[in-house]
Design a protein around this nucleic acid. Structure first.
Length: 149
DNA sequence: GCCAACGTTGGC
DNA sequence: GCCAACGTTGGC
């Protein structure tokens, strides 16, 4: 899951313990949260729009997909008039912090590692804010970071 | 700041 | 259904 750290960082998540992943307005990303993310699944928390972009920590799913209530709030920047409580269009999950990486793994580090050449985040044009990670890729990122969970 | 790579919108 | 115009993401 990607977040711009000046908006919401992994450190914020550590302080908050859990957070709801609101504001996703992309159908593919929504579908991953709605259909694939189960309680206890591990998450790589990625800092985008940062120098350098990097994986910052590990989180896990705390609550499975449910309606993104910010879509119902006309005061919210994520308001969507076509999403209603009876027929919600957008879904979010809650995640909880597990651990920061022992050392961060930058996007350049990911791209340098041949083991990760198939990882989605290193593909060009890959903009999805929520994307699946193969277990072997997840394990390799943790190994690179010197982190055990 | 630039711009490639999208995804969405809406006229036709 | 096509596709041009537009907006956004996010690395560089």
């Amino acid at each position: 899951m990607k977040s711009e750290p000046h908006v919401y960082s992994f450190e914020n998540l550590v302080n908050d313990k859990t957070t709801h992943w609101d504001g996703v307005r992309n159908y593919q990303a929504r579908n991953f949260m709605r259909d694939k993310m189960k309680i206890g699944d591990f998450v790589l928390f990625y800092h985008s729009n940062h120098k350098p972009p990097h994986v910052a920590g590990v989180a896990k799913v705390h609550k499975e997909g449910y309606p993104d209530f910010t879509a119902f709030d006309s005061e919210s920047k994520y308001f969507d008039v076509s999403s209603t409580p009876d027929n919600p269009r957008w879904i979010m999950v809650d995640i909880e912090a597990v651990t920061p990486l022992n050392s961060i793994v930058s996007l350049a580090d990911l791209k340098e590692n041949p083991e990760l050449e198939d990882m989605l985040v290193v593909q060009r044009g890959q903009r999805l804010s929520v994307q699946p990670v193969d277990k072997r890729h997840f394990d390799e990122v943790l190994r690179m970071s010197g982190t055990t969970i």
